[in-house]
Amino acid sequence: MSEEGTFPPPKRLPWHETAWNGLMARIRSGRLPHALLIAGPSGVGKLQFAEYLVQARLCREPDSEGSPCGKCDGCRQFLAGTHPDWRRLAVEAKRKTIRVEQVRELSAWMSLTASQSAGKHAIIAPAEIMTTGASNSLLKTLEEPAGNALLILVTSLPGRLTPTIRSRCQQVMIPRPDQQQALSWLSEQGEGDWRETLALAGGSPLKALSLWDSGGVEQARENARRVLAVGTGRETVVNAADQWIKQDLASVIAWWRVWLQALSRQLQAGPQYADALSSVQGDELQKLASRINWKALHELLSAVDHAERRLDSANPQLLAESLLGQWAQVCGIIRGAPDQRSLAQGRLEGNGSAFTQ
């Protein structure tokens, strides 16, 4: 919130224009559906887009492009979070899912008469964390919409929504911008090593901005130095894993997936694909490249993808040791399939599992 007690105004970002113009065309022709699914990769401003749309719908004096004026009573109430015709449903504190009770309460609210002709508006974000019960409850609202209400689901993982929910929403895709557009926008936000940061963020500008502001780029560089130290035998897997779990492991693994993909592209196609490989690595990375086991590298990338999906059920220490052990195998430090328990010495003992049973 700002000092005046209002929420920061949502913005329409440059790469939103195609999606925005398409929606405005539907509105002008009277074809806006009662439910939208705003989908796309993380870090591209999907929630901002959804909130901007709601503000525009509640605005009493939108401009010729459908953009909200920001000054009328409707806009002021929206920005203050007090507009009677809009709500946002999100995960509650200390929970990981959106519960069925939340959806039932929202559905009951949407069935009430709106205070203005624009109708009721609700956003569910991130929609993919609804429980099965919540999803089933939402279907009733989607099948029997109230009046001219608009329900907007926002997700980076549309595949996790049930097919019946997806089929009852019109999907609006928010793609990543191309590199030039993203770098241009980032440069307008202030000074930074934007090319490297954008690459570390997987091409998502808002994620890149957050990464830079939080000091995440320097942390990524430190993690890269540690990974190289493991790959050259200067640091043990266990010690490196100990450092990883002191951080947010989900963020570390997300970074490593991007780093490994960049490494694979550089080795195959040249340094023009190496933006995510920090310049601090220099000659050491080049020396290591000649020892890379390609089959093991591809297997490690698959393991990292699997780990990202299973973080909630994983033992963090064993997971970090397992992945770093596979990296040591990629680099020839460990021969054969690595074990989670005695990777510090590079020996194979026992049959541990990084995931809880």
Rank of each mutant, 00 (worst) to 15 (best):
residue 1 M to R: 11
residue 1 M to K: 10
residue 1 M to G: 11
residue 7 F to Y: 13
residue 8 P to A: 09
residue 11 K to T: 08
residue 16 H to T: 00
residue 20 W to I: 03
residue 20 W to D: 02
residue 21 N to R: 15
residue 23 L to T: 02
residue 25 A to E: 12
residue 26 R to Y: 07
residue 30 G to M: 04
residue 31 R to A: 10
residue 31 R to T: 08
residue 31 R to S: 09
residue 37 L to C: 02
residue 39 A to G: 06
residue 46 K to R: 09
residue 48 Q to S: 06
residue 52 Y to E: 03
residue 60 R to L: 14
residue 60 R to A: 15
residue 61 E to N: 15
residue 71 K to F: 15
residue 78 F to S: 05
residue 83 H to E: 12
residue 88 R to A: 10
residue 89 L to R: 01
residue 92 E to V: 14
residue 94 K to L: 09
residue 96 K to M: 12
residue 97 T to V: 14
residue 99 R to T: 13
residue 101 E to V: 09
residue 105 E to K: 10
residue 106 L to N: 05
residue 114 A to C: 08
residue 118 A to F: 08
residue 121 H to D: 06
residue 132 T to Y: 05
residue 134 A to S: 06
residue 135 S to F: 02
residue 139 L to M: 03
residue 140 K to E: 06
residue 144 E to R: 07
residue 145 P to R: 01
residue 148 N to T: 09
residue 151 L to Q: 00
residue 157 L to S: 15
residue 161 L to K: 01
residue 162 T to P: 06
residue 162 T to Q: 04
residue 163 P to I: 13
residue 163 P to W: 11
residue 164 T to H: 12
residue 166 R to Q: 11
residue 168 R to S: 02
residue 171 Q to S: 13
residue 179 Q to A: 15
residue 183 L to F: 09
residue 185 W to T: 01
residue 191 E to M: 07
residue 192 G to I: 03
residue 193 D to G: 04
residue 197 T to W: 03
residue 197 T to I: 07
residue 200 L to W: 04
residue 201 A to P: 00
residue 202 G to Y: 08
residue 205 P to K: 03
residue 206 L to K: 01
residue 213 D to M: 13
residue 214 S to V: 14
residue 215 G to S: 11
residue 215 G to P: 03
residue 217 V to Q: 05
residue 222 E to C: 10
residue 225 R to N: 11
residue 226 R to D: 09
residue 227 V to A: 05
residue 228 L to I: 04
residue 231 G to K: 00
residue 234 R to L: 08
residue 238 V to N: 12
residue 240 A to P: 02
residue 240 A to I: 03
residue 241 A to S: 05
residue 249 L to S: 07
residue 253 I to D: 04
residue 254 A to S: 13
residue 254 A to T: 13
residue 254 A to L: 13
residue 256 W to H: 05
residue 258 V to F: 08
residue 259 W to S: 01
residue 264 S to G: 09
residue 269 A to M: 11
residue 270 G to K: 04
residue 271 P to H: 05
residue 276 A to T: 04
residue 277 L to Q: 00
residue 277 L to N: 00
residue 279 S to V: 12
residue 285 L to P: 00
residue 285 L to H: 01
residue 285 L to G: 00
residue 285 L to F: 03
residue 293 N to I: 08
residue 294 W to R: 13
residue 296 A to I: 06
residue 298 H to G: 15
residue 300 L to E: 01
residue 302 S to T: 14
residue 307 A to G: 04
residue 307 A to S: 06
residue 309 R to T: 13
residue 309 R to S: 14
residue 310 R to I: 07
residue 312 D to G: 09
residue 314 A to Q: 04
residue 319 L to Y: 02
residue 319 L to K: 02
residue 320 A to M: 05
residue 327 W to C: 00
residue 331 C to N: 04
residue 333 I to V: 11
residue 334 I to T: 07
residue 338 P to G: 02
residue 338 P to I: 01
residue 338 P to D: 04
residue 340 Q to Y: 10
residue 342 S to G: 15
residue 347 R to T: 15
residue 348 L to I: 15
residue 348 L to P: 11
residue 349 E to A: 15
residue 350 G to H: 14
residue 351 N to P: 07
residue 352 G to K: 03
residue 353 S to L: 10
